[in-house]
Amino acid sequence: MNETTNRYFLELSYHGGPFHGWQIQQNAFTVQECLEKALSTYFREPIFIMGSGRTDTGVHASMQVCHFDMKNQVLGDNFLKAINAILPKEIAIHSVRRVKPDAHARFDAIKRSYFYRITFTKNPFLEGLAWQLFHHPDVEKMNEAAQILLQHEDFECFSKVHTEVNHFRCKIYEARWEQKDDQLLFHITANRFLRGMVRAIVGTLLEIGFGHKQVEDLDRIILSKDRTQAGKAASAKGLFLSQIEYPTDIYLD
Rank of each mutant, 00 (worst) to 15 (best):
V165D: 00
L223T: 04
R117Y: 01
F158P: 07
K100I: 06
L10S: 04
T30A: 13
L10A: 09
R54E: 09
K160M: 12
F186N: 02
R227P: 01
T121S: 12
F210Y: 13
V139S: 01
T228M: 11
I250H: 06
M50C: 08
R7Q: 05
D77Q: 06
F186E: 00
G209W: 04
Q23D: 04
A85T: 11
F68I: 03
D249Y: 12
Y251K: 08
T119P: 03
F186H: 12
T30H: 13
I148K: 13
L150M: 07
Y251P: 11
I110E: 15
I221F: 01
T248D: 15
S113W: 00
S52K: 07
L150Q: 10
H67R: 07
L39T: 08
L126T: 11
D182F: 07
I221P: 01
T41D: 14
N27R: 14
L150V: 05
Y114Q: 00
S62N: 09
A230M: 02
K111Y: 13
L129K: 15
L185F: 10
H15P: 01
P124D: 08
I118N: 07
P46W: 01
L218E: 04
K89Q: 15
C66T: 08
T5E: 12
E156H: 11
F115R: 05
A234D: 14
S113N: 06
G203N: 03
F155W: 02
S62R: 04
P46C: 01
F240Y: 14
T163M: 04
E127D: 03
Q64A: 14
Q183C: 11
A109K: 00
G209V: 05
A85E: 08
E140Q: 05
R44M: 07
E216Q: 12
T41V: 01
I110R: 14
V161S: 08
K171V: 09
